[in-house]
Design a binder for these strands. Structure first.
Lengths: 129, 129
DNA sequence: ATAAGGGTTCCAGTAACGGGAGGGTCAAGG
DNA sequence: CCTTGACCCTCCCGTTACTGGAACCCTTAT
């Protein structure tokens, strides 16, 4: 299976698939003409990666998850630990953004938004309170 | 004022201040010996930048905000528009992360996290439902 | 004279790709 | 037989906002 077809089958752009190969996440065979040749196992890997990335795991996380996937003797605790770690990071990020959100909301609300120069947002940035 | 002192006064690392100069956000004088020399106005600019960055504005946003700051005839509507745009981006990001969060929570909860290999998280990633 | 603690420039690396140049390959149609 | 179009290949650069490090200069104190 050529990379274009593998891209369709996995939902990943061909560019991304080549990149994943470059960083050692997949390793398709090569044909005589130099074309990459994806078998079902590699395509499955690609879909695994696409799903893991869509959940926000980093590529390094993905590498670890792939390893746990192929290791049929793994402890589910290992997977759970990774997922929980990632979940914590996501939650921290949400908290961060929520703080930003409320500050920005206050500023936006305080600003008249008319054609006069007086602006509480600029005043805040300039440190004049 | 040397860059080290300007760093202390603004809360930004010296490295960052040099970077801001490289991208044209600040332009301190130079002394005979080549050292950068920050006056109060430049330091104030640096603090403005530090505050804007802490609110999550991109450097390009910061460039625009600086321009609006020095333009004493600006309309506050322009500032408000920028802030609102940024606020929207933050809110979109929060929504994205919340979706991730709930999916991850479900997966984490479904996983026993023991020393057996059975793992709903891996199953999800592998697409076996 | 030397050592410490500034400062300077430039280069490389980060995460995860996307765009584009320049070129080879393959199947179908005139 | 040749061409066209759709693939494929390998580089290399650009993205964001810095951070670390190397190699070197300046100033001040001992």
């Amino acid at each position: 299976m050529n990379i274009g077809h593998a891209a369709d089958a996995s939902g990943l752009p061909a560019k991304t698939i080549r990149y994943y190969e470059e960083v050692g996440l997949v390793a398709p065979d090569r044909r005589e003409n130099g074309y990459r040749d994806y078998d079902d196992a590699e395509v499955h890997k690609l879909r695994f990666l696409a799903r893991a990335r869509s959940l926000g795991f980093t590529l390094e996380d993905c590498r670890a998850l792939l390893a746990l996937w192929v290791d049929t003797g793994r402890a589910s605790a290992q997977v759970k630990a990774l997922a929980r770690q990632h979940l914590s990071a996501v939650e921290r990020k949400i908290d961060e953004l929520r703080t930003l959100q409320s500050t920005l909301e206050q500023l936006v609300e305080a600003c008249h938004g008319d054609d006069l120069p007086d602006c509480p947002i600029i005043d805040d940035l300039a440190g004049s309170r």
